[in-house]
């Protein structure tokens, strides 16, 4: 065993931390180099960028985490985008009408998100329709409700009293840490989390072992609804308003957040899903902010979107072929070992 391998074996925690941090750091470094060399601007150019990063990070993190609640168990819930619209528009406007400010908007949206998510979960466990198909149907219904609510005006947070807190950096950090703690406990240490992981391993065995897989699914959908609602509130704080959509357009939010989720789950192999998804979201946000700097040299937002999703495509190609790469590495290691053994034997024989 080489010294490096020995070091890695002895410092597993350090190596895992480095692996988790390395990806966002590398993305930032690459974007920084590209931005500075082409536009003369830094990726994080001012405090405005930091605020934008934090707000978009918590939004992207929560949404990706919400998707992961069900996705890891083989349920792709395509209605999460519409749950976000419904929860934020109904809950947010209710909180604003009660003059509860940003915190009220956040809490009420979360509650509505939980109800919206729980309803989808209730339908799923009773109907057993394919989650994706159920999600598409529910998307259309939820979109229509949120479109017709509040006279088609959606949720407008700009200029509303008390919502400035949603752009406060300390508040954002506090909410992010709180969500991390709660979700880590829920996923990793709570009875719900143990059962969820058992179901993730093998649903039938979990069921045979006495785990109520239906209750677990209902809780997963509820948690997902709450998380996407939080994501929606911070997204609205950035964009000032949330305009309702129709025709399954809410799905674009779902698919755009699959990128940080996919990166996050890949990173999670050396940490846990919560930290992994946070690091994945951070990587994607560095990419988006870095690409935004290219606007200064004439790159359109269409091209930026194209690059962003091309990176995702490349990442997915790598993910799909990761085992083949590992296979080649293992083969090389075996060959090297065989050669070394043969040489050793030859030396002994000589």
């Amino acid at each position: 065993m080489s010294k490096w391998q020995d070091f890695r074996r002895k410092h597993v925690l350090l190596m895992n931390t480095l692996f988790t941090v390395a990806v966002p750091l590398t993305v930032w470094l690459v974007m920084e180099l590209l931005d500075y060399s082409t536009t003369g601007l830094h990726t994080m150019n001012s405090m405005v960028d930091w605020t934008t990063l934090m707000r978009n990070l918590v939004s992207s993190f929560c949404f990706a985490l919400g998707l992961n609640c069900n996705m890891a168990l083989g349920r792709m819930d395509t209605s999460t985008g519409s749950q976000m619209f419904l929860a934020c528009i109904l809950g947010g406007n209710l909180a604003l009408s009660l003059n509860l400010g940003g915190v009220g908007v956040l809490v009420f949206s979360m509650l509505l998100g939980m109800v919206a998510g729980a309803f989808v979960g209730f339908l799923f466990i009773n109907l057993r329709i394919l989650p994706m198909v159920l999600g598409l149907g529910i998307s259309l219904v939820y979109e229509c409700i949120s479109f017709s609510a509040n006279n088609q005006q959606g949720l407008n947070l700009f200029g509303k009293p008390g919502v400035g807190i949603l752009s406060n950096r300390l508040f954002i950090i506090g909410i992010t840490v709180l969500i991390m703690l709660v979700m880590t406990y829920l996923f990793q240490y709570s009875p719900f989390g143990y059962k969820r992981r058992a179901i993730q391993g093998n649903q039938k065995l979990a069921n045979d072992a006495g785990i109520n897989i239906y209750v677990n699914a209902l809780l997963c959908y509820t948690a997902a609804g709450a998380l996407v609602a939080v994501a929606g509130v911070f997204d609205t704080a950035y964009k000032s308003n949330l305009v309702p959509v129709l025709g399954m357009n809410s799905n674009s939010t779902v698919f755009s957040n699959m990128f940080p989720m996919a990166v996050g789950l890949w990173l999670a192999k050396k940490s846990n899903p919560v930290i992994g998804i946070l690091a994945g979201s951070l990587s994607v946000q560095f990419l988006v902010l870095g690409l935004a700097k290219f606007t200064n040299i004439g790159m359109s937002d269409y091209m930026q979107t194209c690059i962003k999703y091309s990176v995702w495509l490349v990442f997915m190609i790598y993910r799909m072929n990761e085992d083949k790469i590992q296979l080649i590495k293992d083969k090389r290691a075996r060959v090297a070992l065989a050669k070394a053994t043969r040489a050793q034997r030859a030396a002994v024989a000589a």
Partner: peptide
């Protein structure tokens, strides 16, 4: 500056230009 406000990259683009 063309583009749709509905795209994720539109608002960061505006921000980036204004920050110049």
């Amino acid at each position: 500056y063309p583009g749709s406000p509905n795209k994720d990259t539109w608002l960061p683009g505006i921000s980036s230009l204004l920050q110049s």
